[in-house]
Design a protein around this nucleic acid. Structure first.
Length: 106
DNA sequence: GTCTTGACTTCGG
DNA sequence: GCCGAAGCCAAGA
């Protein structure tokens, strides 16, 4: 059980239409660094699992990981498919859509 | 072994 | 609010 397995477990529990941040996940799992979350998601494609990584954004609500998706604009399209509006690579109404793991999982 | 590289965040200016 | 520096820690070279 590596830390990225826990990251995947949390990310899979993010409800559709909501988003969360690297920092919140790192804090919830006590990883010590938000970078580890990004690194875990970077490796997620070869885990074989279907991780909804598009629901994880940075603390400003920006789609900082969009470049690592299979195609250009894929991350944004997946979010829009869940009724999340994106303007200039940022989640609109981000503060309202933010999903905090520690308030729902514990 | 060290050094670099990040899907990040926080703090000071 | 923006910018630069620093802290963070697992891979890969």
């Amino acid at each position: 059980m590596h830390f990225y397995d826990k990251v995947y477990a949390v990310v899979e529990r993010i409800p559709p239409g909501r988003v969360t941040t690297y920092g919140l996940i790192a804090d919830f799992l006590a990883l010590g660094s938000a970078r580890m979350v990004g690194w875990a998601l970077n490796q997620s494609h070869k885990s074989g699992l279907d991780i909804p990584a598009h629901r994880v954004v940075n603390r400003k609500g920006e789609l900082s990981g969009r470049a690592h998706f299979p195609g250009e604009g894929v991350m944004q399209q997946r979010l829009e498919a869940e009724n999340i509006e994106i303007t200039d690579h940022r989640v609109k109404d981000f503060n309202n859509l933010l999903w905090n793991p520690s308030e729902h999982l514990l």
